[in-house]
Each structure stands twice: as structure tokens, then as C-alpha cells.
Nucleic acid binder design. Structure first.
Length: 581
DNA sequence: GCCGTTTTCGGCCCGACTGTTTTCAGTCG
């Protein structure tokens, strides 16, 4: 395999940019859509697209001869000549304009051609001078809205919100449903699908579509700005800095509306295509016969389950709705039975005040017991991570004795003492091999020298594998803050499968790493997955549900995940694994 | 640019809301 092979993420990025530029250039809708779709498909592949043959690529739905050739060219040279040619043709600031609310490709093109607007700064200038409203198709109102959108962007940037933060806000809003006169409400959109970050919060509610609920919603205290409000739909920007859309439907359309509002867009497009082939049409107003233009007698609309059934599919959980092959699996009744939070019996990677946690061992145990965990490995950092007060083996033994004594207060909770072990630059550990072998559960982590070359990082992790039971937050990324390090996932997972070492999905809202894509790849390589809270406070043990969400997106089942094991099964797994080395 | 249980050509998902318009295009999800 070639060195420094072009990543799927990079290929997807280039294809996505191509789609954007083609749209700006006024290309045929379906032409640029094909690039857009291909970008998403490549981003979701577990195999390396750059390493695939032409035949393998064209076998992927949505990638034909032409796109396969582009991918191959990018893989071979790292360059995409057609894209570069287009970049030269269009002003570089034009794609930026699309990020302003209310500006699409047509308006961006018109702004550039009529007024030479090729940057957000120039757009702002034009609207401030009152020149924008003089353009065809624009008016006073458009000018105001665009100026306000530009200012909002300057302030908020285009950052997406972490899944967990958005989930907390959404759940607070849902509590207000009754006071808005709504029968029931739930969040939909990318939040329901469990995406790691979300761009807006979508709320679907059952109620009378007479505009009272949307009107009240638009006047809530936490609303910063109203974007639109109609009888059934309302879009606002919250003071929390995120857009929130409310949609109100009657109870009999809840299923079709939920399906439509959950997306993903690509999943919905594929479902609608499937419906069309069956002489049906799918929208938020139900799955209807083509002739039933008014949606008078839906074939299915009340629940999502009946819609999937009527399309000849098994029910597809929201986390899988990304058009990454789930529809085909649903047709063949071959969808994985996804892990649920209730399958999880305990947590292994977490911290107490003995290293850098906020809570005592007892507080952590109490919370674990309250959550209904069957077992709990109480963790802390190893030396030499001084910033986190990492401990040596002597202190490990002392605190293990303390834990054993404390455990008597929680008779229903089986316990163990775990260590988040430093993986040094050369792949050795923070403890000696002898010491590490005596630790109840060793979770290995890289916390230093993130910038080492990919090949060295690959060797570093592979070298550490036999001595650690699991690898924690494998890429070291912090969403929105730090990119993390890279290594050859294929090679490392292969070695991990041989060593029997598990890989972690970390439930910290800004980590969520392994990702949905890399966790799927780990599973395919035969690597077990560990779900962790990495809790640094008792309340953070709730992050287990974040880790489960990522696991579900990765298509993991109960048997793929260590946390579903009984205490005895887990001990056996650890023993067998260590016997291998 | 992709794709095929009518098809290798001619389709390609559907609707709400807004603003600028006198019937609709653009944007968004």
C-alpha cells in the first residue's frame, strides 16, 4: 500500500468543493448533486477509497465511471485538475457567500455578475450602502435580512454545536411543549440521528396547525431572532447561538413528518426514489399513491414503522439513516440489531480526585450504582502525566485497597481499579510491564507528541497494544478545538485484532472518538469496542449515552461491545487477552 | 454525473416560507 495514502475525508472534501463550485458556475442541478452525493458516500466508506480499484469504486452506488476516475486521480497525485481549473474561473470568496443565510447559488452568482460582490465583506458594504435593494429580485426587506445574517455570522461564526450541548437545549425546549399548547414534541434532524455536531435543532410537535404554537414559540425568552413564522413552521435563532426549527403537524401525520424531519436528506431522497418505483410518493404528508395528489388517503403516515413496512423495508433506526447502504440492508432484513443504553452494564475509563477528577471514589461509585451499573472499574491517570496528577504503581495499589474497602458500601456493584496508562513516544508505558500486568484493566492513551509523522504514530500504538486492554480516545481529537493525530487505522486495527486489544468510543461530548466510521472499520477488522464516559465528575457518567449513540451510528450490536458483558465474562475476556501476549 | 423489474435515454424528491412579485423564484431543510 502506498505511503501517506489520501484519506477518504480529503477526497470527500475535494468532491464537496467541486459540487459547490459547479453549482456556483450554474451547472445542471443533477450534475453537481452527483458530486455532493459522492462526497458523502466516500466520507462514509470504511475501506480506503484511494486503495480501491476502478471496478470496486464503480460498484459503489452513486459512483460511476467518471467519479471513479476522479477518485483514482486524486489518490494517485493528491490533485484534482478539474477542480483546480474551476477554482481559477471563479472568485475565491464566492463559496463563502453561500454560508450567509438567504444567499444561495443563484443569488451569489447574480451578486457577483451584477455588482462584483466576491466576498462577504463586499456583500456587507453593499447592503450597508443601501445598494443591494436596487438589484433585480432584491428589495428593502432582503437587504435588511442579509445584512443581519452577515452580522450574525461575524458574531457566531459557522461553528456547529456539540451533539450533547444541543441535546440538553432540545430537552429543555421539549419541556415547554405543553405550555405552547402542543400535545407532544420530540427532537428530530441530525440530533436524533446522533451526528457528532449539529447545525440546528429540529423539533417536531403534534398540535393544531393554526399558528398559535408557532407564534408562542417565536416569542420565547430564549429566542434571539425570528427567521420565519407560519402556521405550521417556525424558524428562530436561540440566544444559545443555534438555529431551532419547530414544525407542528396533526397526530395522524406524526410518522411521516418525523421521518421527513429526521432525514438525512440523502436517506429521504433514496426513500422517495424507492416510493416512486412502487407508484407511491413520500412527503411529510404521508406515503401516498401517485394519483392522490392532495394526500387525502395516505397508505402510511401515522408511525415511521408503518412507512418503512409499506416500502418493503425493516424499520431503520435514526442513527443509520445516512444513505450508507442501510436501505439495502433493510430490504434484505439484514440490519444490525443496534446496542442500546440499557445493554450497558458498566464503565471502565473514568477519573477520581486521586488524579484529575472532581469527585471522590465514593461519589463515583454512588453515581454508578444509582445509574444501575452492574460493575464499575474506578479509574485514574498513570504517571508521568503530571498535569493530570498521574499516579505511580505504589499509589495505584494503595487506592485499589481503598476502593476494595469502599465497595462494601455498594453490595450490588462489582468493582475493579483501572488505569488510563500513558503511551510514551516510543510505545512504552507509564508503568513497567510487570506493574501494568497487575492492573485490573489498562486503558492506553496518547497524550503527547501528537505531531509525530503518521508512520511513527502507527508504530507507537502498535507497540503498545499487547500490554493494554484497550486504547482510549484513539485520535486525540477535540471537536472544534484540535484535529488530533493520524495513524494507519487499517494496520493498527489488524494488529489490535491479533493482540485482542479493544478500542474505545469515548463519550465526552468533544471527543466521541472512535467515530462512527472508524468504529465500523474496527468492527470489520474484528476489534472489540469499549464504551467509556471518561468521566471527570460524577454527573459525567451520563456521557455513556453519548458513547452508545456513536456506537449505534457505527452499526454496533451488543456482542461487539465489552460493556455489555457480565462482570465474570469481562474478567474472563481480560484473562484470555493477557494470556495471548 | 448516475442509473435501469417499462428504460443505455431521460429521468433524477418534496413542500413551507419569504419577498418581490401580480403568479413565482429563491432558499432552506
Amino acid at each position: 500500500m502506498a505511503k501517506n495514502i489520501v484519506s477518504n475525508a480529503r477526497i470527500a472534501e475535494l468532491l464537496g468543493e467541486m459540487a459547490e463550485l459547479l453549482e456556483l458556475a450554474g451547472e445542471n442541478y443533477f450534475h453537481f448533486r452527483a458530486y455532493q452525493k459522492a462526497a458523502q458516500i466516500v466520507a462514509g466508506l470504511t475501506a480506503s477509497a484511494a486503495a480501491m480499484t476502478d471496478e470496486e469504486l464503480t460498484e459503489v452506488r452513486g459512483i460511476g465511471k467518471s467519479l471513479a476516475a476522479h477518485v483514482a486521480a486524486i489518490a494517485a497525485t493528491g490533485a484534482f485538475p478539474e477542480l483546480e481549473a474551476l477554482r481559477k474561473k471563479l472568485p475565491p470568496g464566492l463559496p463563502e457567500l453561500l454560508k450567509v443565510q438567504g444567499i444561495g447559488a443563484k443569488r451569489a452568482k447574480l451578486l457577483y455578475e451584477k455588482s462584483g460582490v466576491d466576498s462577504v465583506a463586499k456583500l456587507k458594504e453593499l447592503s450597508e450602502k443601501g445598494e443591494l435593494e436596487k438589484l433585480d429580485g432584491f428589495g428593502k426587506k432582503s437587504e435588511e435580512n442579509i445584512l443581519s445574517a452577515v452580522k450574525f455570522r461575524e458574531q457566531a461564526g459557522d461553528k456547529r454545536m456539540l451533539h450533547w450541548e444541543a441535546r440538553v437545549i432540545a430537552e429543555e425546549l421539549l419541556k415547554l411543549a405543553a405550555s405552547l399548547g402542543l400535545e407532544k414534541a420530540a427532537y428530530a434532524g441530525s440530533l436524533r440521528r446522533g451526528r457528532e455536531t449539529v447545525g440546528d435543532i429540529d423539533i417536531l410537535a403534534v398540535g393544531r396547525p393554526d399558528g398559535t404554537a408557532t407564534e408562542k414559540f417565536s416569542k420565547l425568552d430564549r429566542v434571539e431572532k425570528v427567521l420565519s413564522v407560519g402556521p405550521t413552521k417556525c424558524s428562530v435563532i436561540l440566544k444559545d447561538g443555534i438555529q431551532c426549527d419547530l414544525r407542528v403537524v396533526p397526530a395522524n401525520l406524526y410518522g411521516s413528518a418525523m421521518n421527513y424531519f429526521t432525514g438525512s436528506k440523502e436517506h429521504n431522497v433514496a426513500l422517495r426514489g424507492l416510493a416512486l418505483k412502487m407508484g407511491l410518493t413520500l412527503s411529510e404528508y404521508g406515503l401516498c399513491k401517485l394519483a392522490d395528489k392532495e394526500h387525502k388517503k395516505p397508505v402510511a403516515s401515522r408511525t415511521e414503522e408503518e412507512i418503512y413496512k409499506a416500502l418493503g423495508l425493516a424499520y431503520i433506526p435514526p442513527e443509520l439513516r445516512e444513505n450508507r447502504g442501510e436501505i439495502e440492508l433493510a430490504r434484505k432484513r439484514a440490519l444490525p440489531e443496534l446496542i442500546e443504553l440499557s445493554d450497558v452494564k458498566g464503565d471502565i475509563h473514568n477519573h477520581t480526585a486521586h488524579s484529575d477528577g472532581a469527585a471522590t471514589m465514593e461519589e463515583m461509585l454512588a453515581r454508578a450504582a444509582a445509574l444501575g451499573f452492574k460493575w464499575y472499574f474506578c479509574g485514574d491517570h498513570s504517571k508521568p502525566l503530571a498535569i493530570a496528577n498521574g499516579m505511580d504503581y505504589k499509589k495505584y495499589e494503595e487506592t485499589r485497597a481503598e476502593l476494595a474497602a469502599l465497595s462494601k458500601k455498594f453490595p450490588k456493584l462489582k468493582t475493579g481499579r483501572s488505569i488510563e496508562m500513558e503511551i510514551m513516544k516510543d510505545g512504552s508505558l507509564g508503568f513497567s510491564a510487570k506493574e501494568a500486568a497487575k492492573v485490573d484493566f489498562v486503558v492506553g492513551s496518547v497524550h503527547s507528541a501528537f505531531k509525530m509523522p503518521e508512520a511513527e504514530m502507527t508504530d507507537r500504538i502498535i507497540k503498545a497494544l499487547p500490554a493494554v486492554d484497550a486504547i482510549a480516545h484513539p485520535s486525540g481529537r477535540l471537536l472544534g478545538k484540535r484535529e488530533g493525530f493520524t495513524f494507519d487505522y487499517g494496520k493498527v486495527f489488524e494488529a489490535a485484532a491479533r493482540a485482542g486489544t479493544a478500542f474505545e468510543i469515548n463519550g465526552q461530548p468533544d471527543r466521541q472518538d472512535l467515530t462512527d466510521v472508524t468504529a465500523r472499520k474496527a468492527k470489520e477488522a474484528g476489534v472489540k469496542i469499549l464504551l467509556s464516559t471518561d468521566a471527570h465528575a460524577a454527573a459525567q457518567l451520563d456521557y455513556m449515552s453519548m458513547a452508545v449513540t456513536v456506537a449505534r451510528r457505527a452499526g454496533l450490536t451488543k456482542s461487539d461491545v465489552l460493556n455489555t458483558f457480565s462482570y465474570e465474562e469481562l474478567l474472563t475476556w481480560i484473562k484470555r487477552r493477557r494470556a495471548k501476549r
